[in-house]
Design a protein around this nucleic acid. Structure first.
Lengths: 99, 99
DNA sequence: ACCGCATATGCGGTCAAGCGCATTTGCAGT
DNA sequence: ACTGCAAATGCGCTTGACCGCATATGCGGT
């Protein structure tokens, strides 16, 4: 159960959920981009990304002065399914509001 | 986003996740049954059920001296999908361990 | 009316999560 | 070597989640 709890805890925070949502396009994003898009301070963004990395949701890579984060391609399918369901609920809410 | 965050927070707690899992059989369960099955104190169980009720995951019903909780049948599908993905990951982990 | 089981709740304590600020570290250009 | 941007981290603080204990409330049965 612990794995699921860790994942849920990681997602149950606004900054982290926003980051996961952005990273779920499959592309790489540096911390500076994420913090600007989401609108949070640098240390805050950095720490939250660490949490996401620790639960295995994302991967990071040094690229010169930047650290590029992206969705972890090796994330177990059952966990990916959870994240996708969450993102779908976010997008769905948006769509229904617009309709 | 708030709705999803509330749901995730509600699920990201051991006692509540265990309760949701039990209630997801669609049947009714009283607090006394839940607390015994899960193995927690009465006040603890009661309070966690309140949280689950507040986020709309479960419904309660007075039946004589008991309060019967069950899965909320009116839970929006996108949220139900999240919960089902979580439960599937729990069951899946179990099955794979046994295999 | 009283008792007893089931459930909820008031209260106070503990602990970890999250935060900002300041500093450090990593890296590239000059 | 020095400067500057990107990212991480040490530190101390605040706040809210969760807990147990005790008590209140709801509801039959006697």
């Amino acid at each position: 159960m612990q794995v699921a709890l860790d994942l849920l805890s990681a997602l149950a925070e606004p900054t982290r959920l926003a980051a996961v949502r952005l990273l779920w396009d499959g592309r790489e994003h540096c911390v500076c981009e994420l913090m600007e898009t989401i609108g949070v301070t640098q240390s805050r963004m950095s720490r939250h990304m660490l949490v996401l990395k620790q639960v295995g949701v994302v991967t990071d890579r040094r690229d010169a002065q930047w650290v590029r984060y992206r969705r972890n391609p090796d994330l177990p399918p059952e966990q990916a399914a959870i994240i996708e369901a969450v993102i779908a609920s976010l997008d769905g809410a948006q769509g229904r509001r617009a309709a």
